[in-house]
Design a protein around this nucleic acid. Structure first.
Lengths: 198, 198
DNA sequence: AAAATGGAACTGACCAGTCAGTTCTGTTTC
DNA sequence: GAAACAGAACTGACTGGTCAGTTCCATTTT
C-alpha cells in the first residue's frame, strides 16, 4: 500500500490540518500521529522533531503558491491575461488556504529572527514567488502598460498586499474578484475610470 | 511610586517585548515578571492568566491604530490630505510595530476559530478600524474623487492590504512612502498617469 | 495597621522524544 | 513451496524536564 513517500505526505496532511487550526503549542504529536493513522514513534522516522514537521508543512505552501503563479501567470502570453491569471491564482490560494498562509507567516517570523541556513532558504523561496510576480509585472513595463517610475518589485509587493487584503474579506458578496483587483491595481480607485477598467 | 495603572502598563510593555519576539509557548511568565521588575505572583494580580495577558497586549494594538487613523486621517478636512494621512499613519504603524501587528494577527486567528464574547469584541474592534478607514474613503466618494462601483468597505480592505504589503518591504530604499501608496491607490500602476499622481 | 508586593518554593499537568519489543516484507535456503 | 532469516518499519508505554498557576511570608508602601 502506501509507499514511503505517500506516508510522508499523509503525515504532513494530518499535521497541516491541526497546525492551521490551532497554535503550535496546542497541538500534540500524539494527535497528529493518531489522525495520520500511524504510531507516534513513526512520526520521528519521517521528521526529526515537531519543529521540522511544522516547518516542512509551512514551506510546502510556498511550493504550491510558486507553482500556481508560474502556471497561471507567467505561462500566459498577453500581459493583461497574465496579470489577471496571477491575481486569480494568488487570490484563490489566499482564500481557500488562508490558514496555511497564516502558518507560513508564523514560520517566516520565527525564521527571520534567526540567522543561518534556515533563514536563507526561506528567503530564497519567498524570493522565488516575489520574482515570479515581478516577472509578470516586468513584462507589463516592457509592453508599456505599466508606469516605470516605481520598480516592478515594489509594485509586486503592493499587488500581493491588495490580494491579501481582498482575500481577507469574509463576506463573499463584497469580496472582489481577481479581475477586479487587477483592474484596481492598474487604474486605481479614482473616479476618472471606465466601469470595466481592464 | 508607580500607581496601579502604570504598573499594569509596565507589565504589558515587558510582555509585549517578549511576545512580539518569540512564540507564545517560548515565553515564560517568569521572564515577563523579571523584565517588568515585578514578582511572578504579582502578574496574577493584574492578569487572570497568560492567555489574558497576551490578549490584552494584542488588543491594545488596535486601540493605538484606531487612534492614529482617527487623528491623522479622519481629522483632516480635505480628502486627499486625509488619504495621505491615513496611509502614513497605518504605514508607519505597520513598519515600526510590525511584530505587534503580527501578534494581533495571531490573536485574531485564535479568536475567530471560537465563538462567544471574545470573538465578538475582537471583531468589533477590528470593525472600528475598518470603519475609520472606510469613513475617509466615503468622503472621497462623496467628493466625487472615488469610483462608486466598488463599496468603500472593499476599497478600505484593499488599501490596507497595499499598506501592509509595502510595509513588508525590508529595504528602506525601495519601500514606498505613504504618499506614493496613496497615489497608487488612487490612480493605479498603469502607465497612463502623470508622475506625481495625486 | 492595612494593603500591596517580591520572590522563593511548591504542585500537578502536560508532552516531546525515546527505545525495547513487535510486526511486516523481502530474500535466501532447503 | 515452505521454512528460516534479516532487517526495516512501526508501536506506544515510559521518562525527564518544563512551566503555569498557587501559596506563603517577609518586606515595603500607603
Amino acid at each position: 500500500m502506501p509507499d514511503r513517500k505517500s506516508k510522508r505526505e499523509q503525515i504532513m496532511k494530518a499535521a497541516e490540518a491541526f497546525f492551521v487550526a490551532r497554535r503550535y503549542h496546542e497541538i500534540t504529536m500524539e494527535e497528529i500521529a493518531h489522525r495520520a493513522g500511524v504510531g507516534k514513534g513513526t512520526l520521528y522516522r519521517y521528521f526529526a522533531d515537531k519543529e521540522s514537521l511544522f516547518h516542512e508543512v509551512a514551506a510546502s505552501g510556498y511550493d504550491t503558491l510558486c507553482a500556481l503563479v508560474t502556471s497561471q501567470g507567467l505561462g500566459k502570453a498577453d500581459f493583461r491575461e497574465a496579470l489577471v491569471g496571477t491575481c486569480e491564482a494568488i487570490g484563490g490560494f489566499l482564500r481557500h488556504r488562508r490558514r496555511l498562509w497564516h502558518m507560513m507567516q508564523m514560520e517566516e517570523r520565527r525564521l527571520l529572527c534567526r540567522h543561518g541556513r534556515g533563514r536563507d532558504a526561506w528567503l530564497a523561496q519567498r524570493g522565488k514567488l516575489q520574482e515570479a510576480v515581478s516577472g509578470v509585472l516586468r513584462r507589463g513595463v516592457a509592453d508599456g502598460c505599466l508606469r516605470r517610475d516605481i520598480p516592478a518589485g515594489s509594485l509586486a509587493t503592493v499587488l500581493m498586499g491588495m490580494l491579501r487584503g481582498s482575500a481577507h474579506e469574509e463576506d463573499p458578496e463584497s469580496r472582489l474578484k481577481g479581475r477586479q483587483v487587477a483592474a484596481l491595481f492598474l487604474h486605481g480607485a479614482s473616479a476618472a475610470v471606465g466601469k470595466d477598467g481592464l
